[in-house]
Every structure is written in C-alpha cells, then in structure tokens.
Design a protein around this nucleic acid. Structure first.
Lengths: 215, 215
DNA sequence: TCGAATTGCGCAATCG
DNA sequence: GCGATTGCGCAATTCG
C-alpha cells in the first residue's frame, strides 16, 4: 500500500527621446502575427502613418480559455474557474480510467501516477474497453513516440508564441511612449501657434479700429 | 521512422476595428505588472497625460530565456537554439538516471516513460546513488504530493501570466491606435493654423508695403 | 476514421 | 530542506 497524506499548505509564497520617423513593419510583430495560425490581420492603420500592425486576435487557443479539461484532472472545473486551482486533489474523484491496457508495465523511471486504480469507481468501469493495446506492442511504442514528438513540437511552438507576445507587448509599450511624446510636442507647438495667432488677431483688431477712427 | 508533415495554414478573418476614446489606468496592465514579482516599475509617463504604465520588465523567467535545461531532456541544446526542437530523440542519449528508487512500481495507468533504462550509459552509471528512496515510503509519497501541488500552482500562475501578457498586448495595441489617431488630428490642426498664419503674414507684409509706399 | 496538435498531470532534476 | 520551475512522457481529447 501507500499512504496519502494530503496537505493543504497555502503559503503565500535607451535610446534617445523620439523624433518619430520610425514606422517600420515592426519585425517582432510580424513574427508574432505569423505565430497565430488561426486568423491573421495585418490591417494597415489607414491613410496616414502605419505602425503597430493591428492583429486582432489573441487569447485564442488554450481550449477556449481554460474551459474544460481532459486528461487526468477529473472535475476540478469549479476550482479552475476560481483562482484556487492547485491544492491536493479531492483524492476521491480520480477517475483513473486506465483504458484497459494490458501492459506488462516494464516502466522504470517514468511516472507512476497515483496508483489506486483497481479501487474506486465501481460504476462505469470498463464500459468502452478500447482495443486493448499492449504497451509492449510495437504499434503502441510507435504511437507514443510520435505523440512525444508532437508534444515537444507543440510546446516549442507555445514557448515561441509566448515569447513573441512578450516582445510584442514590450515593443508596443515603447511605441506608445514615443507616440505620447509626439503628442506632447504637437500639443505644445499647437499652443504656441494659437497664442501667436491670438496676438495677431488682437493686433488686427486694433489696426482695424484705428483705421475706422481715422476716417 | 516517422513522417513529419508540416502544415502551414494561414487563413484570415477578423473582428471589427476599434473606436472608443478612453485613457484609463488600464486595469489589465495593473494586474500584469503585479504578476511579475521580479521588478515592477510604474514610471509615470511625465507631465502630460498618463497612460500605459511603462513596466520595464518582461521576458524574464523561463530560466534565462530558455538557456540550459535540466530534467529528462539531455543535450538537445543546440536544437533548442535553432528552430527544430522536437524530432525524435537520438534514442541513444536517454540518461534515464532513475535514481535507484527501489520501487515495486505498483503503477497502473500513469506514465511508464521509455523503459530501456538498464542498458545504455555504461559510464557514470551509479555515481551518486542518492539515498535510495523507496517509492512506497510515506515520505516519498508525501514529497511527491507536495510537489504535485506546487506544480499545479506554478502552472496556474504561468497560465495567468501569459493571459495577462496577451491582454496587455491587446490593450497597448488599442491604445496605440488611439494615439495614432490623436496625432493625426493634432497634425491636421497644426497644418491649418500654419496655413492661416502664413496668410496673415503675407497680408501683414502687403499692408506694410502699402504703408511705406504711401509715405 | 486516423493522425497530428493540445493540454492536464505526475515525475524528477534543479533552482532559489 | 522546501517550494517553485521546467523538460519530459503519458493519456485523453480536440482538430482537420
């Protein structure tokens, strides 16, 4: 046997100013966009200056934003929804379907998840009994190996995607700073011109008044 | 052998543009910043309008941006550096240390990684031999369970972090659009004023010339 | 229906 | 020593 003591420990545990002119296609974003096979929009901002490509998509995969789950985790849905995922499993709702794989389990170091499978769930125990696939069969190994490769590939992709998103965020942030600065400059310039113009206007009014009085 | 068919589907489709015109403290970013324990800079943009908090950090964890690796993966470093990670392992460099755990491996559905462990690596075989920890020992299970909880917690955290980064990128993107628009407006207004001013200037020059000639 | 792609999970090695 | 990370393989599911 084995003892399971479930603990519930919840310890808390540059460059220069601006000067604009920079309006390239934004290398990082290019990659970022291409990293999303789903959709991909490189909508030109409009007539004026182009800039951070508006890629209207994100927060896509992850199976509808963390909705259901499938593998081992059984019914922690409610928890997932909330903020307290982790924490020991209920220790009672471990489906552990173990699709009737005959298996001579000649494993050596790999996992050995939980275990108590022969017990629990007297109901719907071996309802499906998918083709009992021997874990020794060459086919099984072939499938496993292929899946392992796919998994590595998928995770690699995910990592790159995450990295790109981070870089993109950083880039957008920088661009934002520049734009803010630019706005500041324009605003100031505008204020100056408005002031000048108001002065001229007053001047013109005085001149006009003088002219009228001289008639 | 296994065949790798890499698909490159890049269809498109996208939501609608944007509109709005706000410039709040950016709720998402607030969270995003707090999700990075490392540093956290909420540098106020300056005198003018505040906006996207400049959080100078990102692309941090992930062990120095995918540097070394530790667990099972042996020496696929070169590959990691390049773009072709996945692909079947050399099938020969599988350390499979299997820390001399006695274990009666009473697993049932859990993993059973690879297997061929007794073979390979005649060198540095049992150099360390850490305290042979029985996989049955209560202590072992205790450690495992605690680690499992930590793992779930950590992954949950990572997921939230990723989500926040995505939302942050999206938000920055929207803000960028608005700023671009604002710049367009200011620029146009400025052009108008400049034009008016140049007209006045000409007018003034003519008046001046007329005045002189009348003397 | 099948194979690749995702994703949650537990394990083990490390890191901090 | 202990929790936090992270790569890995497994199995269940989803996707195309």
């Amino acid at each position: 046997m084995t003892v399971f003591s479930l603990h519930i420990n919840s310890d808390a545990s540059g460059p220069d100013p601006v000067q604009m002119s920079d309006s390239r296609p934004s290398s990082v974003i290019q990659e970022w966009v291409s990293s999303y096979p789903g959709q991909a929009h490189l909508t030109p901002v409009g007539p004026g200056q182009s800039s951070a490509q508006l890629a209207q998509m994100d927060v896509i995969p992850y199976s509808q934003s963390q909705g259901m789950m499938r593998g081992g985790g059984e019914d922690r849905l409610a928890e997932q929804m909330m903020g307290l995922s982790y924490l020991p499993y209920s220790a009672s709702c471990l489906g552990n379907a173990s699709n009737s794989v005959s298996s001579t389990h000649h494993q050596s170091h790999g996992g050995s998840q939980q275990d108590f499978s022969p017990f629990l769930l007297p109901t719907l125990k071996a309802p499906v009994t998918k083709r009992s696939i021997s874990k020794d069969s060459a086919e099984y190994r072939l499938r496993r190996e292929r899946n392992n490769i796919a998994v590595r590939k998928s995770r690699d992709k995910a990592r790159r995607r995450i990295l790109l998103t981070q870089q993109r965020a950083l880039q957008l942030q920088e661009e934002n700073q520049k734009l803010q600065l630019r706005i500041g400059q324009l605003t100031q310039e505008l204020d100056t011109l408005k002031h000048i113009l108001s002065q001229r206007h007053l001047q013109g009014a005085e001149d006009g008044a003088a002219g009228e009085s001289s008639i």
